[in-house]
Computed example of a mutant assay.
Amino acid sequence: MKVLVSIALVCALAGCSTYQAHSNLATPYAPTDPSKVQILYAPPQRAYTSIGIVSANRYKPGWTDPTISDAVPQLQAAGAQIGADAVIVRADRSNDDRHIVVEGEAIKFSDTKSQH
C-alpha cells in the first residue's frame, strides 16, 4: 500500500501530460528525433509542407499556471511521432484547473538545409 501511495505522490508532483498527433498524409514520414523538432510561434521564412495537427495537454501542479513552454516537450514528441521537422504553435488555452492545451501545425521543411 505504501508503494502505491508513493507512486501516486511522485506522479502528482511531476505533473501529468499527454499528446496527440494526426497526420493528414496517406504515406506518413518516418518518426524524427523529438529533441530536434523546432517549436515555432510564426510560420518560418523557408518552404515547408503541412503534415498534420498536434496537440499537447499539460497539467502543472503548484502555485503557478502552466504556460506554452511547459508543453514544449509534448509538442516535440507529438511532432516527432509523425515525422515533423517543426511545430508551429497555432492556439493555446488554459483552464482554472492547472491544465494547458496547446495545438500546433506539424510541418516538414521542403529544403534540406538547416536554418540557424
Rank of each mutant, 00 (worst) to 15 (best):
V5A: 13
S6K: 06
A8Q: 04
L9R: 01
L9C: 12
L9G: 02
V10S: 09
C11P: 00
C11F: 07
A12N: 10
A12P: 00
A12L: 12
L13E: 12
A14T: 11
G15C: 12
S17R: 10
S17I: 02
T18C: 01
Y19H: 15
Y19D: 13
Q20G: 06
Q20N: 14
Q20W: 06
A21F: 00
S23N: 05
S23Q: 02
S23R: 03
L25Y: 01
L25I: 01
L25T: 01
A26F: 02
A26N: 12
A26D: 13
Y29V: 04
Y29E: 10
Y29W: 03
A30R: 03
A30E: 12
D33C: 02
D33K: 09
D33N: 15
S35V: 07
K36W: 01
K36Y: 00
Q38K: 14
I39W: 08
I39C: 05
Y41M: 13
Y41I: 10
Y41V: 13
A42C: 00
A42Y: 03
A42D: 13
P43W: 05
P43L: 04
P43T: 11
Q45Y: 10
A47L: 11
A47K: 14
Y48S: 12
T49V: 07
T49Q: 07
T49G: 06
T49L: 09
T49M: 04
S50Y: 01
S50N: 14
G52R: 08
G52K: 10
S55Q: 09
A56M: 10
N57T: 14
R58I: 06
R58L: 03
R58T: 15
Y59F: 15
Y59P: 11
Y59M: 10
Y59S: 05
K60S: 01
K60L: 11
K60A: 01
G62D: 11
W63A: 07
T64H: 06
T64Q: 09
D65A: 07
P66L: 07
T67Y: 06
T67L: 08
T67P: 00
I68C: 12
I68V: 15
S69H: 13
S69I: 03
S69V: 08
D70N: 15
D70E: 13
D70I: 11
A71M: 11
A71W: 03
V72P: 12
P73S: 10
Q74V: 00
Q76R: 15
Q76N: 07
A77G: 02
A78F: 04
A78G: 02
A78K: 02
A80R: 03
I82H: 03
A84F: 08
A86V: 14
V87K: 09
V87D: 01
I88M: 05
I88Y: 03
I88N: 06
I88S: 10
V89F: 08
V89K: 09
V89D: 11
R90L: 15
D92N: 15
R93A: 14
S94Y: 00
S94K: 15
N95S: 15
D96V: 02
D97P: 00
D97I: 06
H99R: 06
H99I: 02
H99Q: 07
I100H: 04
I100D: 14
V101G: 00
V101E: 14
V102A: 09
E103D: 12
G104N: 08
E105Y: 03
E105S: 12
E105C: 05
E105L: 14
A106M: 04
A106N: 03
I107N: 02
I107H: 02
K108A: 10
F109S: 03
S110C: 04
D111M: 06
